[in-house]
Amino acid sequence: MDDGCMIVLVVAGIIIAAIIAFFLVVYVILPATGIVIIGIGVAGSGWGAFVAGRNFYHVLIEAHQREK
C-alpha cells in the first residue's frame, strides 16, 4: 500500500471517528447527561415538594400548639 492510500485511509478513519464521536455525544452522552441531571432534579423537586408540605404541616401544628 502506497503512502497516498495510507493518508486517505487515515483521513477517512478520522472523519468516521469524528462522525461516530459526534453522534455519540449528541445522541448518547448529552441525553444521558440530561437524563441524569433532570432525573436527580425531578427526584429532588418531588422530594422537595413532599418535604415542603410535610414541613409546613409540622410547623403549622407547632405554631398553633405554641399559641394554645
Binding site: T33, I40, A52
Partner: peptide
C-alpha cells in the same frame, strides 16, 4: 464528568427545596 453530572443534579434538587418552600410559604 459523570460525577459533575450527578453534582449538578444534586444542586438542582437542593435548590428546588427552596423553590417549593417559597411557593408553599407564598400560598400560605
Amino acid at each position: 464528568y459523570a460525577a459533575w453530572v450527578v453534582i449538578v443534579g444534586l444542586w438542582i434538587a437542593g435548590g428546588i427545596q427552596y423553590v417549593t418552600a417559597t411557593i408553599v410559604a407564598a400560598l400560605f
